[in-house]
């Protein structure tokens, strides 16, 4: 079955089994392996991608459902070289250890701060509660997201 959508600014058309998840499509068909699968039943959040501006679990979405949508993965949030302000804040605060949950944290935090650049610590924690990290204990992740707010406020001011 065919589906056409946009990934990280590029139009793609795929011909896949209806049962293929968006996550598997991104990873195995399109080679975007930054999107990780940690549970495949919608709990861990590692597979979070941004669909039309909203963070969603790509393991609970079918590739064919993405027809006509605009998708952003962690690769699409990464500058050509170096790190985005959000990614740099993660690095500065040591907000990742093994790094497996990290793409989902970055996409989720990006979606949040794009809409709510003034989110407070409670809101950040609430939003990130759908992403499981086993290494960090979350404290540095929250610090990193709070620090990154400044960059999103600036972007908002400029746009």
């Amino acid at each position: 079955m065919k589906a056409a959508f946009e990934v990280n600014g590029e139009s793609v058309e795929v011909d896949v089994e209806p049962r293929l998840s968006l996550a598997d499509c991104l990873r195995d068909v399109l080679g975007l392996t930054g999107t990780h699968l940690g549970c495949e039943h919608g709990v861990c959040g590692a597979c979070t991608v941004i669909v039309d501006g909203q963070a969603v679990r790509s393991c609970l979405t079918l590739a064919v459902q993405a027809d006509g949508e605009r998708i952003t993965t962690v690769e699409g949030l990464s500058p050509e070289a170096g790190l985005s302000p959000l990614q740099a804040a993660f690095r500065k605060h040591h907000a990742l250890q093994c790094g497996f949950c990290t793409p989902g944290m970055v996409t989720t935090a990006h979606a949040l701060l794009s809409e709510e650049p003034d989110a407070d610590a409670d809101r950040v924690r609430e939003v990130l509660s759908g992403n499981i990290c086993r290494c960090t204990g979350y404290v540095p992740i929250v610090e990193a997201v709070l620090e990154a707010r400044a960059a999103y406020r600036k972007m908002e001011g400029e746009s």
Binding site: G45, A55, R57, L60, T108, L112, E126, V127, S129, G130
Partner: peptide
């Protein structure tokens, strides 16, 4: 109800 990403779908 549920978490951020789930709430979006």
């Amino acid at each position: 109800i549920a978490h951020y990403q789930i709430r979006n779908r």
